[in-house]
Nucleic acid binder design. Structure first.
Lengths: 168, 168
DNA sequence: CAATATACTTGCATCGTGCAATTACCTATG
DNA sequence: CATAGGTAATTGCACGATGCAAGTATATTG
């Protein structure tokens, strides 16, 4: 009964694998929200993210937006285009560097944002209602470190993952 | 100075919004993994998820697979098709109900799975290395409840979110 | 004042996704 | 036991998202 060879230590149970669990919650919660802003405003996911970013700034250029919501320049450009078409944002060419454009939210963009944010907050509240205050605090602090570590993992690529043990 | 009207309680800061934070970690961590199994095996995300599911079962039909990895029947069918083409899975028509097919992993499918799972485990280890044991336990238990609550949110759709206060 | 670099945009080819229609099969009913 | 209706899975097609090459406009540098 040399069964050991058929049970490698590489087992991975999808439903218990941390990245999948995070993905699952994020995906399940994103669907109703996307449904809402899609139907109500014809907004794409990138459009919503960008709208949220410019809602909390006076203005931002494409690079800043991309950094703030993890979108590549192409997606940012198209997302801004969509918001401008919808009348939710305006582009003004940058005063200092005219290759950049200062994007800002319009009044009707802010109205849309407020409606979507209300739903977003309701979703977050539903999730948090299942956690104690202590758990919420722990989760928040843990997520900060997970965000940093996942950014490093992403930056390193898969080749870097196969040999090295642990991190700094 | 009736400024209150211009500062509604609908503010939502993307970078502090729980669903976005979960999404961000999941997405950043998924990219290197997808890069790996995409280049190495020509596998899609659905293909990888299905492979992981049939790796832990003797066989499964499409409906079971879909339930286990949150994929709709179309995606499952196409994912299985891909795995069969790659030689990673075989379909045998179900003995009890011949509308269903019993899908099982092949030897070479398991080889591929083991290689990918090694990477997946490395990623998870990197993430967990940033958390204390206590935090890992709290996160695990919190995620269980978040999974359940997000499933309810998803099932209810966005209309159910706008009026009701709290949950059960 | 070229030459090169940067910020962003556009076009195009490709791929994933959603949905209607289809096939094959099972089950219940008269 | 024929058939009507339901279910599991698949396929075709249309559409939108995504990735990348190339283009435009502007800035910077030697």
């Amino acid at each position: 009964m040399r069964q050991a060879a058929t049970v490698p230590d590489d087992v991975l149970k999808l439903s218990a694998w941390l990245p999948y669990r995070l993905f699952l919650v994020a995906a399940q919660v994103a669907r109703p929200l996307e449904g809402f802003y899609g139907e109500a405003f014809g907004l794409s996911q990138a459009g919503w993210r960008i709208l949220a970013v410019i809602a909390e700034r006076d203005s931002a250029n494409a690079a800043e937006i991309g950094r703030a919501c993890a979108l590549d320049p192409f997606a940012v450009s198209r997302g801004i285009g969509q918001l401008v078409e919808l009348g939710f944002a305006v582009r003004r060419s940058g005063k200092l560097d005219r290759r950049t454009a200062a994007v800002s939210i319009t009044r009707s963009g802010r109205n849309a944002f407020n409606r979507i944010a209300a739903l977003g907050n309701a979703i977050e509240a539903r999730l948090l209602s299942r956690l104690t205050e202590a758990e919420q605090a722990t989760l928040g602090s843990a997520l900060t470190r997970l965000e940093a570590e996942s950014a490093r993992i992403d930056a390193g690529g898969w080749r870097a993952l196969l040999d090295d043990r642990g991190g700094s």
